[in-house]
Simulated scan of single mutants.
Amino acid sequence: MKLSTPAVLAPTILVLLLLIPATEAAIKCSDVVKALTPCVNYLKNGNGTPTSACCNGANKLNSLATTSSDRQTVCSCLKTAAQNINPNDAAAKALPGSCGITLPSPVSKTVDCSKIS
């Protein structure tokens, strides 16, 4: 009995589809960190104004976080980053306004990311 090509390919395609992750986060922490790396000095020192590179990164991050899931991912990444760099609270709070944007989440060590919508 000779099998047709579709009959042979169908099980192979099914196995390949099962191996592909069902969903993949649209935003990764590495993207968040990369976007806000130019802001680290401003956030740590808390003086002056953020650089244009910092504001460009924050703006890019803001435009990437389009869904609640994205915003919660950004929040978790920012929270972890804030724990590592220990930002000046006033500078972290002022960053979005200084750049003329609204970030999906504050740069804070204490934010509850489950409440970000």
Rank of each mutant, 00 (worst) to 15 (best):
S108G: 00
P104H: 07
Q83Y: 04
T51M: 03
I27F: 07
S30H: 04
D70C: 04
K109N: 11
A58S: 14
D31E: 15
L17M: 15
A7F: 06
T12D: 01
K44F: 00
E24F: 08
T110F: 02
D112G: 02
A7S: 13
G100I: 12
L61D: 11
Y42D: 02
S63F: 08
I13Q: 02
S114Y: 01
T23K: 11
L64A: 14
N41G: 01
C54G: 06
G46Y: 12
L61Y: 10
K2V: 14
L103M: 15
T102G: 07
Y42H: 01
A92D: 03
C29A: 08
A7Q: 13
A82Q: 08
C99H: 08
T23H: 12
A90P: 00
T49V: 15
P96E: 07
C77I: 10
C99K: 10
I116C: 05
I20N: 07
L36V: 15
C55W: 08
N88A: 01
K44R: 13
L16A: 15
D70R: 12
G46T: 05
L36F: 03
V33N: 07
L64C: 05
V111L: 03
L95Y: 08
A92V: 05
L36Y: 02
L17T: 10
N41K: 09
L78S: 09
I85F: 04
Q83E: 04
V107H: 04
S76L: 13
N86I: 01
R71Y: 02
L43C: 03
S108F: 00
L3I: 09
N41H: 03
A26G: 09
T12H: 03
A82E: 06
G97C: 04
K28H: 13
A53K: 15
N41W: 00
I85V: 12
L17N: 07
A53H: 07
K93R: 13
C55M: 11
S117E: 12
N41T: 13
T37H: 06
L95D: 10
L18H: 01
T49R: 10
D31T: 15
A53D: 14
Q72G: 06
A65F: 10
N88H: 04
I13W: 00
P11I: 13
I85P: 02
L36C: 01
T49D: 07
K93C: 00
I20Y: 11
D89I: 05
C39H: 08
P21R: 10
C75E: 07
L78V: 09
T67V: 12
S63N: 14
S105N: 11
C75W: 10
A81T: 08
G100Y: 12
N47V: 09
V33L: 05
V74K: 13
A22R: 10
K2L: 09
E24Q: 15
C113R: 12
Q83C: 01
P50K: 08
P87D: 01
V32W: 09
A90H: 01
